[in-house]
Computed example of a mutant assay.
Amino acid sequence: MTYKIAILGASGYTGAELVRLIATHPQMEIVALSGDRKAGMAMHEVYPHLRHMDLPALCKIDEIDFADVDLAFCALPHATSQAVIKTLPATTKVVDLSADFRLRDADEFEKWYGKPHSATDLQAEAVYGLTEFYREKIKTARLVAGTGCNAATGQFVLRPLIAAGVIDFDQIILDLKVAVSGAGRSLKEHLLYGELEDNAFAYAIGGQHRHLGEFDQEFSAIAGRPVRIQFTPHLIPSTRGILATAYVHGEAGAVHYALADAYRDEPFIKVLPTGQAPNMKHVRGSNFCHIGVVADRLENRTIVIAALDNLTKGSSGQAIQNANLMLGLDETTGLMNAPVFP
């Protein structure tokens, strides 16, 4: 069976990544692409690398007949998905790539995003889209909320360690290096080549980053009590990728065992042998995440490092992994392509 797919917000980076990945998916057919500011344009006019694909022209969302759509990927800007998803037929499954449904508490959403949530009924219904940990709920969900790319990377490192109780919950430091595509395609002065090339800098410092809302929500639920981590992201002059380094209080052998045990049967999470560290280029363009564990010279201190592609495993690949489950398909379908190297 072939499922009919709509991509809302197809003119952004995550939308284009969805199109690229679905190109080799044997059971998905793209029937609608929206991009309001570029409506009427062919997709290859916006993204020439997709010229080989037979795709519908970009249109406005209200021009799509959702009666013919089995599943919609919503790759719209934050705070705009709520209004759109409220109007979709109940028969259309939705994977939302924005932040609109990641936080379960409406007050927490307003705290981190600065405005009240306008679809609290859907917020209560949405399933958090970290596939490896919410797989069974995702299978029966109508609405899945994709995680933030930084949030996904940090959680792949820390969730199993908190669940196993092998680290001190109050002594967690997470340092992320994130590529520029994580900031989207819109023009921003600090992302100009002349500003970012030969440069790197921290941002959202001191607990300001919105993905902390996801960390607080998820880690506290696992621990059964509040868990607050120190987290600083850094923008680096790279197009794709995230490298996360977590500094934890815990014995390296126990940390490695907890991670290896948690991901033993996971197709996309690869825990490296003890002492090896991952590399962003080793996962580029793929739905894989590599995790390494290294003992620190200080007693009972361990360094855990994870690498993934922010546009794929951190966003669009994760979205397709979730969509596969929602449609009753093997979750790896269309996603086992090897990373692009060099």
Rank of each mutant, 00 (worst) to 15 (best):
F101G: 02
T92S: 09
D100G: 05
V127A: 04
A145L: 07
R185D: 11
N150A: 14
L161W: 03
R142Q: 09
E197C: 12
T147D: 10
W112Y: 13
K137Y: 09
G146F: 00
R185A: 14
G148R: 02
L122Y: 04
Q171W: 11
T120A: 08
A179G: 08
G184V: 00
Y113W: 11
K86W: 06
F133C: 00
G182A: 10
V94E: 08
K86C: 12
I162K: 04
K177S: 15
G148M: 05
D170S: 11
W112K: 06
L196Q: 07
A145G: 04
K139C: 08
L158A: 05
V94H: 03
S98V: 05
N150E: 10
L196M: 12
L191V: 00
V94P: 01
E136P: 08
D175H: 14
K115T: 10
W112Q: 06
P160A: 00
E197D: 15
K177C: 12
Y134W: 15
A83V: 09
H190M: 14
T91S: 14
V157W: 01
T140C: 14
D175S: 15
T140P: 05
E132I: 13
K137Q: 14
Y128Q: 09
A164G: 01
F109R: 01
E189V: 12
V178W: 05
V144R: 02
T131P: 09
A119Y: 11
V95D: 03
P89N: 06
E136T: 12
D168P: 01
P160M: 06
T91H: 15
A179K: 03
R142I: 10
C149W: 13
V180D: 04
K86T: 13
L161N: 00
Q155G: 09
K139S: 10
P160E: 02
I167T: 02
G165Q: 05
F109C: 09
E125L: 03
L176G: 06
R159S: 10
Y128S: 11
R104W: 07
D121F: 04
Y134T: 12
A183H: 14
K115G: 08
V84S: 00
A141K: 01
V157N: 09
D107E: 15
V94L: 06
L174S: 02
G184H: 00
G182Y: 02
L103F: 09
I167V: 12
I85P: 03
W112E: 02
